[in-house]
């Protein structure tokens, strides 16, 4: 039981983070709070992907001097998995682009309805 908890408790913390963001997305009434929830959700997903690239006892994915020029064979277990890092680098930049568009739409809604609360907007839009 203790081994299971020690091997898996990181995943449970990522799932709790994702649940916080998901709850803010569907249950909060304010539009800016919903955008904050989207941000937390995406960060939790990126954290999960980074965590599956982690290897115990490995170092950064940057080749050392002896591996770079020497004639030694490269030890695979010595370096972290670099592929999820690259994909999540792209995902972070796309996250900020969607954040900008979402905030622009929120500003437009405030200009038209003079409020950011969802129920007031729905009442006024009828």
């Amino acid at each position: 039981m203790f081994d299971l908890v020690m091997a898996k408790y990181n995943f449970w913390i990522y799932i709790v983070l994702m649940m916080i963001g998901f709850y803010a997305m569907i249950a909060k009434n304010n539009l800016i709070k919903k955008i904050v929830g989207i941000n937390i959700f995406q960060t939790a997903i990126i954290l999960f992907y980074i965590s599956i690239s982690f290897k115990r006892g490995a170092t950064l994915p940057i080749l050392t001097e002896s591996d770079m020029h020497g004639h030694t064979t490269i030890e695979i277990a010595q370096y972290l998995n670099p592929l999820p890092h690259v994909l999540m680098l792209t995902a972070i930049v796309v996250m900020v682009a969607t954040l900008g568009v979402a905030l622009a739409i929120a500003i437009l809604i405030y200009r038209k309805y003079h409020t950011l609360e969802e129920d007031e907007i729905l009442k006024e839009a009828k």
């Binding site: 800016i32 929120a106 500003i107 609360e117």
Partner: peptide, 12 residues
């Protein structure tokens, strides 16, 4: 910047 263009008050 978005909060400066809108409001910083909220109900929840």
């Amino acid at each position: 910047a978005a909060l400066m263009k809108t409001t910083r008050r909220s109900r929840d």
